[in-house]
Nucleic acid binder design. Sequence first.
DNA 1: TCAAAATTCTAAATCGTTTTAGGATTTTAT
DNA 2: ATAAAATCCTAAAACGATTTAGAATTTTGA
Lengths: 342, 342
Amino acid sequence: MTKKKVSIDDIAKSLGVSKTLVSLVINSKAEKHGISKITQKKVWDKVEELNYKPNMMARSLRLGKSNTIGLIVSDISNPFYSKMARQIEDLAQKKGYNLIICSTDENIEKELTLIKMLKGRQVDGLIISSSQKKSEELNALLKDNYPSVFIDRCIPRLKANYVTVDNTRGAYEAVEHLIQQGYDKIAAFAISPIHVSTINDRIQGYLRAVKDHEKTYNNSLLVEIPFNNIKASVKKEMKKIHDAKESVRAIFALNNHIAIACLEAAQEMKIRIPDDIALVSFDDIDAFRLTSPSVTAVMQPLDEICDHAVKILFHEITNKTELEKKHIVLQTRLVIRRSSVL
Amino acid sequence: MTKKKVSIDDIAKSLGVSKTLVSLVINSKAEKHGISKITQKKVWDKVEELNYKPNMMARSLRLGKSNTIGLIVSDISNPFYSKMARQIEDLAQKKGYNLIICSTDENIEKELTLIKMLKGRQVDGLIISSSQKKSEELNALLKDNYPSVFIDRCIPRLKANYVTVDNTRGAYEAVEHLIQQGYDKIAAFAISPIHVSTINDRIQGYLRAVKDHEKTYNNSLLVEIPFNNIKASVKKEMKKIHDAKESVRAIFALNNHIAIACLEAAQEMKIRIPDDIALVSFDDIDAFRLTSPSVTAVMQPLDEICDHAVKILFHEITNKTELEKKHIVLQTRLVIRRSSVL
DNA sequence: TCAAAATTCTAAATCGTTTTAGGATTTTAT
DNA sequence: ATAAAATCCTAAAACGATTTAGAATTTTGA
């Protein structure tokens, strides 16, 4: 910046009044303090003239709040999280808050570093989709009752606010749908790390559905796809299934990345979905509407998730006393896009 | 927060030294100022013990820089921009910067308000995909040589740093591709507001390609789809084309939203792409790989765009003197996904 | 032995706000 | 006329860091 910024002092000096006066006027506390209308106008005119904009850093320092909230997710370019970010952005905006967005790449250490960094930046609250396995470090970082809401995923033994969906039930319904379509052996493609609560719960849902309906199950039906090599692994697994000419004719993809990889692999190997192999995905994303035939998916109520998360967060931010932790569990909805035919 | 935060003063007091000393140690300026190793260790130990983290607001105020950059786009949930955001986030992270992301919804006023807000927050620089029609307000806002880079779109008569792609040529190649496939009458679906430079340039490219190859053209071939009613409008236009049984058998969608709407409409109306109507899109997004048959699209070199933008921005941030404005124009690449058949 | 040099540390100003605790001055009431 | 009340305004501290300019002490050198 070449030009010197104009401060409250400049306004005060050039008007021959105190900065207290200027501050009061600017913050609409003039009436309360009996500042005359005439002086008020003078201040506003000068503010206009010099194009004064308060320095939010200084204000934040003084007030001890930054009007910023931090959003930590595994990858902001994942449509599930970018949609979420947008929703949260809008809600925060309404309250005069801005969003600092950070991606962790599922890296536990990076996540912890980011939380520390955001705390150092004095963000007023945190919304986190965490990849942690244990709760120790998080507990240590948040023990000072730092306003925070955990979203999407649960961490074992972490006492915190949560907004999640009923992953077990969502998965159950998805698998049940396949069963009702007549599929018997259903493969589940989980993404590693499977310690993540969402994935684990979905696996439970899958297992329960298979068991309840007395469908065959063996270990080879549940495969774990490594996070860093999704595409190749999925292709390999699909090929296995396709070549085996076994009765496995349906795949339950445990998140959108896996489902996308399935679609790609199918395309490359000329496997027709759902004619050759049926596919149901957890997480609904725009692309699944567009693929033809489009993909049936478990939809998470994104707007509701964000509403709750933001509401809880702001409640904590405003009431600085220790509040009881909340855990909101929302229901998913199975979006059936095409009745799969055997 | 229940607990009082620990400040540099707490460290100093509990150690019986000055805060200058503590500050110097913490900022690795101890050697330069001849602080003894013993004292340094004492400071670090106490920092550890009290779990001291510097208050970045205070530091920023003093230093006059926030280590934050603002990213303004029309909608962060648009995959084009969320991918971009992720890329910029990573590059910024490496330099110790964080990202505040804001969506404008193509709203001119909102964009200006956001810029003011971000300046008030003392962000060190701005990366903007702007929706402005005129340059006046932007010029006023940035006249103090505020570090900024305009990305994706150009604003008439705005003297600023730009990183864009050659939209005209990209569009030309896309349309040429359709022509080479044997299509004669090619419709172009533009999204309003068409004053946006990207859209306008793409229209020029379309027109030139049609003209160069002496294909028929009339006004009805270029249709403007209103931003706030994409889906219905696209459906209507596609129906027109389909019903008319005219020779219009190809659509050039001028951005990803339009292309997505085309796919949806086609699906609903059982129009086969590309057998009934061929489709080429500007902007390549993941979904286009997955649709079957997948969609040919003009790909923008996202990584390169971000690299340049961030590089230019940091150059401006570090060299506070008035620098010559740069305009980087990158080339697009036509990703041919399936040879359209007549 | 004593001034100069080296070593190790610190007081205070500063960044730009908000807020507390009152200080002047004028008006009102008796 | 004067105390009380009302009106309008301000000085200074505080938020938590960095940095300038120099102070206090010890060491060195002749």
